[in-house]
Amino acid sequence: MKKKILISGGGIAGLTAAKFLTAQGHEVTVIDRAPSFTKAGFLISLKSFGVQIMEELGLLQELQAASSPSEFVSFVEKDGQVIQHLSYEKMNKNIERSVLISRGGLHNVLYDHLKNQLNVLFSTTISGINSAGNKTKVTFSNGQGMEADLIIICEGLRSPTREKYFTGSQMEDFNTLYMGGRLKTKHSEPVGAFKIYIDVNKMLSIYPIANDEIAIQYYIRDTDDLATIKQRSTETLQESFSAYSAEVRDLLNRFAEEGLMFVDKMGMVNASTLVNGNMVLLGDAGYCPTALSGMGASLSIYGAKALSHFVSKSPDDLRSACDNYNTLMQPIIRKFQTNARNNASSFIPADENKLDQFVKFFRAASDDELKKTMTDPIVLTEDQLKFKANK
């Protein structure tokens, strides 16, 4: 039976869910606080099951066309000495494939595919939710509203709807400033060969993604609130890497002045349940680990498919569908969020001793040890890929 489904948040998770649920014949409405969608965004690595699901949606060709080449990565110390040089092909051998793409690029692939099939209300948010039986009346910020059988909340890490209606959820603050974006500039670096600088309380990644463009991302430990961090982000950038080479400093200064930049503070949501009545959390709003896990986008896509899978199995019992989704997702969430915490500790070492431990281990590690560290923690089991939950 066709259901009225509201998706609040038209990001990667929301649009993937919309694609699956629309294909099932449900009446799907998407609202988003943004006035329009853009292609801007930091680089993400879509891996393994995330790529598989995009292929299932018939979007692999578009995904590859929007992606950036990725061949090698060198982990280096702040003076440029190489710790370890890795081939992406070797490193990703046990996860089938990996696609490097900007978050905006991935989002645009999904939106381009859906925009003529989907009702998207821009500059619109949820202002109130009132439930009576199996029906729920949602009021929008513009005073309008709708009745919905299911409300999927994909509003991102700082979701106001989650904060209001999911009182058992908490935000875990990694106390880490994150900045990412791209700079249009001519350069002589080989495209697809990346450098990741590992240092005490910070990590800097430089990605030559085209002959005239470099993507830059970095993490810096910072305990201030987000508003303060954003206000002094340029100053923090320049101070944090002042001891680096003149070439790196010049690149970062130009990035701060001319680049397309995204600034945020790393965190993730710990939710005891993803379900409250006929409301369900999806993506960053409910569980996606920080970018430090390397799997946030893939988990958003997987969660969207998992939820739609259970809806397809019991469209007339959406409460059970949501409960099954929650049961499946909780152990996966714990695994990937643990991986994010471990990566934060390893790749952003808190002191010189931990930095020294990282350098010694990575420099001496075998291919098998590196694979175990880099890719084994991000693989799902066969049962999880088939949406079999261990109750």
Score class of each variant (00 low, 15 high):
R33W: 08
A306E: 02
A340K: 03
D383G: 00
E235T: 14
D212V: 10
T373R: 14
C154I: 02
H26T: 00
S300G: 15
D367P: 01
Y197V: 11
S36F: 13
S314W: 07
L63H: 05
G105V: 05
H107D: 02
L150V: 05
T38R: 10
P331F: 08
D222A: 02
A34V: 12
R254W: 08
G267I: 05
Q117P: 07
K90F: 05
N116F: 02
E382G: 04
I7D: 05
T29P: 01
G259Q: 05
L121M: 14
D79M: 07
H187T: 00
Q337F: 08
V263P: 08
N134Q: 15
I214N: 06
L183N: 07
S102F: 04
K3S: 12
Y287A: 10
S245M: 05
N324Q: 12
S68N: 15
L177T: 10
E77N: 11
A256W: 04
S366G: 11
D173T: 04
F241E: 10
L282H: 09
A364M: 12
A306D: 07
R232D: 12
V311K: 04
A148W: 02
A344N: 12
G267S: 03
M261P: 00
H107L: 14
I151N: 09
E96L: 13
R33V: 15
A148L: 03
A34L: 14
K360M: 09
S127P: 05
G181I: 06
A297H: 05
V73E: 08
L183V: 10
L6A: 03
H187C: 00
E382L: 07
N324T: 01
I229Q: 14
Y178K: 07
L121R: 15
K4A: 11
H309T: 12
H26L: 00
A344G: 10
A66Y: 07
A271F: 03
K371Y: 08
N343E: 07
E189C: 06
N175R: 14
S188D: 12
G267H: 04
K90M: 09
V200H: 03
I216T: 07
I12Y: 02
V28D: 01
F72H: 13
V82H: 06
K335A: 09
F122Q: 09
Q238T: 14
E147Q: 14
I129S: 06
L59Y: 01
E258P: 01
N134Y: 13
C288V: 09
T176E: 11
M91P: 06
A271W: 06
G58M: 04
Q24F: 00
G41E: 01
F194N: 14
I152K: 08
R33T: 13
L282K: 08
T161F: 00
K388N: 12
